[in-house]
């Protein structure tokens, strides 16, 4: 084969360019820590990384929902346990008042019952994150109010409806959300002896019965308050179950998250050891190519003839 000047030039240029390109790519991978700088570097992995990243973002979002829900449930749970002891306290008062021996004693019971009523009312208006947790879906409005002139307790009519946040991944079908709230209706309204009653009204009624000395009403109160106590405790159990489910979801999410982070790292991150070794190899080859190019350029008959005659 005849070797010409243009041939040597073109060949050297192609080799040097290719090596230079590899060096640029490797050093970019090493300095950025990322294997891919554009989809064209590895289209399939790029798309996978994008989808994984979106998944991780959704996990973070759900995690925030879970911690919000956990806070909510804890606030609910503590309100319920306080309410449960208030109701049991009211029942105790009713038992004691049924054998009251004078107006002074009765008056003291009335005061105590009114205090319990006030506390129960405050619990009903418990807020978490600025929202009334027992107000159903209308978390901006306080669920209970007392008419200052008549003293009548009013349950906000909108005190129903659920608050939903996403606490687990949606697998394509909607409706994988569960309510995080227990409505005021569920807790404060209960059935006793075939009729629907309200805890607050019952406590209020107890106070009125003690004041008027209506012993039949007081003994009725002992029964109805007992049912109210049971209802609150039942709701507490629902609450406990929800909290433990949230914990399960949280730990499942952590496993997913760890897996996906690992996968993302596999897809995106540069294998430093491999890349550095490869860079060194390419650099050595590049240096050799440069040397050869310089040497070969001088290797021709003309230069030798000039050398021998001059």
């Amino acid at each position: 084969m005849r070797i010409t000047l243009n041939m040597q030039d073109a060949q050297s240029l192609l080799t040097l360019n290719n090596q230079q390109e590899q060096i640029t790519q490797l050093s970019q991978q090493i300095s950025s820590g990322q294997q891919m700088s554009a989809p064209s570097d590895d289209p399939y992995s790029w798309a996978q990384a994008m989808n994984t990243q979106q998944g991780l973002r959704e996990y973070t979002s759900i995690q925030s929902n879970i911690s919000f829900a956990t806070g909510w449930e804890q606030a609910t749970s503590s309100a319920l346990s306080q309410l449960s002891s208030l109701v049991s306290q009211a029942k105790q008062v009713a038992i004691s008042a049924s054998s009251a021996s004078g107006t002074t004693e009765s008056a003291a019971y009335v005061t105590e019952v009114n205090g319990i009523l006030q506390q129960a009312l405050n619990l009903g208006n418990t807020q978490y994150n600025g929202q009334y947790i027992f107000a159903g879906a209308a978390t901006g409005t306080s669920p209970f109010s007392v008419d200052s002139s008549t003293g009548a307790v009013t349950l906000n009519p909108l005190c129903t409806g659920s608050i939903n946040v996403r606490t687990s991944l949606n697998n394509g079908s909607s409706g994988s959300t569960s309510a995080i709230n227990i409505t005021g209706d569920d807790i404060f309204t209960y059935s006793s002896g075939g009729s629907t009653l309200n805890v607050l009204s019952e406590i209020q009624g107890l106070g009125q019965a003690i004041q008027s000395g209506d012993s039949a009403a007081i003994s009725n109160s002992i029964t109805t308050l007992g049912d109210a106590f049971n209802n609150v405790n039942n709701q507490s159990e629902v609450e406990g179950a929800r909290l433990s489910e949230l914990t399960t979801q949280q730990s499942a999410l952590n496993v997913f998250q760890t897996n996906d982070k690992g996968q993302l790292s596999n897809l995106q991150d540069t294998d430093m050891a491999a890349a550095t070794t490869k860079l060194q190899a390419v650099q050595t080859a590049f240096q050799a190519a440069l040397q050869v190019t310089t040497k070969v350029t001088n290797l021709n008959l003309a230069s030798i003839l000039t050398g021998s005659t001059g």
Binding site: T4, L301, A302
Partner: peptide
């Protein structure tokens, strides 16, 4: 291909010197 083309049509300095 350019190499093949050069091999046939290109100018070889060595050949010209000879």
């Amino acid at each position: 291909l350019q190499n093949q083309q050069q091999s046939y049509s290109g100018v070889s300095m060595d050949q010209e010197m000879v």
